[in-house]
Computed example of a mutant assay.
Amino acid sequence: MDHDEQLLRASSFGVAAAAYAEHRPDYAQAAVRWALEPAPGPRVLDIGAGTGKLTATLVALGAEVIAVEPDQAMLTELRRSLPAVRALPGSAEAIPLPDASVDAVLAGNAMHWFDMAVAGPEIARVLAPGGILAGLWNLMDDQVEWVAGLVRVGGTAAIGPRDTPTSWRAATAGMHLPKTGVGPRFGSPEQTEFPHGQRRTADSLVATIATRAGMLVMPEQEREATLGRIRGFLTGRPETGRGEFTVPMVTGVLRVRRL
């Protein structure tokens, strides 16, 4: 993906903010606990917070959360659903917080959009010494046969390079972390996965997939054709064609400590 395409996809979510808030999954609490486990304190920045999916899990776990999000439509949804959370406009490359003001920086399905050459030093700036940077990704479990079939039918625009555990392990390990030799140093990365799931129907899973960046930037006719193929696949499968079902997922976590 070239730089212009990356920017287009990264900025595409605002047009679907309400649908994103309604249909995207939350994060496995065990995964969030693991991400925070080595943090020296309770102050957490959710960067690229979107509509607050990860923010809500952090609040439920008792963290002191500040959410930062660059897209105004997404930020509006976050403030509507979590009015008690301090939610600020900003980005990983320009964080509106003082130096050493948080104990952990977490990003839910967002770290791959960061320009880490700029964001790495900026994240290090706001992290207290010993603080944690962690990215979390919700992944559809393609070891399950019908999910693997859905991946084939949907194509990479619908089920992208970080949307299944197999592709996430290959695409993500170390790739999106701050580079060594740029500003404060980070330790060795750790990576693991936690079981997760989301209750869906065929229609609501189609609606979820429609909020993926690859779908949002697709020409309308092509997008409708792709979603139609996915809907036909889901309604024709015994696992997904009869009311509600659980989408088998894992939450993948990549974490690193600021030295």
Rank of each mutant, 00 (worst) to 15 (best):
residue 140 M to T: 13
residue 140 M to I: 09
residue 140 M to W: 12
residue 140 M to E: 09
residue 140 M to S: 12
residue 140 M to Y: 06
residue 141 D to M: 10
residue 141 D to K: 12
residue 141 D to T: 04
residue 142 D to H: 02
residue 142 D to T: 11
residue 142 D to S: 09
residue 142 D to V: 11
residue 142 D to R: 04
residue 142 D to W: 11
residue 143 Q to T: 15
residue 143 Q to S: 14
residue 144 V to G: 04
residue 144 V to M: 02
residue 145 E to C: 03
residue 146 W to Y: 15
residue 146 W to G: 03
residue 146 W to R: 06
residue 146 W to N: 14
residue 146 W to F: 13
residue 147 V to W: 06
residue 147 V to A: 08
residue 147 V to T: 01
residue 147 V to I: 15
residue 147 V to N: 02
residue 148 A to N: 15
residue 148 A to G: 01
residue 148 A to R: 15
residue 148 A to K: 15
residue 149 G to W: 10
residue 149 G to M: 07
residue 149 G to A: 11
residue 149 G to T: 02
residue 149 G to K: 03
residue 149 G to D: 08
residue 150 L to W: 06
residue 151 V to R: 14
residue 151 V to E: 12
residue 151 V to P: 06
residue 151 V to N: 01
residue 152 R to K: 15
residue 152 R to Y: 06
residue 152 R to E: 15
residue 153 V to C: 05
residue 153 V to K: 07
residue 153 V to I: 15
residue 153 V to S: 12
residue 153 V to E: 14
residue 153 V to D: 11
residue 154 G to V: 11
residue 154 G to L: 07
residue 154 G to T: 00
residue 155 G to P: 06
residue 155 G to V: 04
residue 155 G to R: 12
residue 155 G to T: 07
residue 155 G to D: 02
residue 155 G to F: 04
residue 156 T to H: 05
residue 156 T to S: 10
residue 156 T to I: 11
residue 156 T to G: 14
residue 157 A to D: 14
residue 157 A to E: 14
residue 157 A to W: 13
residue 158 A to F: 10
residue 158 A to G: 05
residue 158 A to R: 01
residue 158 A to L: 01
residue 158 A to V: 02
residue 158 A to W: 03
residue 159 I to S: 03
residue 159 I to Q: 00
residue 159 I to G: 00
residue 159 I to L: 08
residue 160 G to V: 12
residue 160 G to W: 03
residue 160 G to F: 02
residue 160 G to N: 14
residue 161 P to T: 15
residue 161 P to W: 12
residue 161 P to V: 01
residue 162 R to P: 00
residue 162 R to H: 04
residue 162 R to W: 04
residue 162 R to G: 06
residue 162 R to M: 13
residue 163 D to E: 08
residue 163 D to V: 01
residue 163 D to T: 03
residue 163 D to R: 00
residue 163 D to F: 00
residue 164 T to Y: 09
residue 164 T to G: 05
residue 164 T to P: 04
residue 164 T to H: 09
residue 164 T to V: 11
residue 165 P to T: 11
residue 165 P to G: 13
residue 165 P to Y: 01
residue 165 P to L: 05
residue 166 T to N: 03
residue 166 T to Q: 15
residue 166 T to C: 03
residue 166 T to W: 07
residue 167 S to Q: 13
residue 167 S to D: 05
residue 167 S to G: 00
residue 168 W to S: 09
residue 168 W to D: 02
residue 168 W to V: 03
residue 169 R to W: 10
residue 170 A to L: 08
residue 170 A to K: 06
residue 170 A to D: 14
residue 170 A to W: 11
residue 170 A to N: 09
residue 170 A to S: 10
residue 171 A to Q: 14
residue 171 A to H: 14
residue 171 A to T: 10
residue 171 A to S: 08
residue 171 A to Y: 07
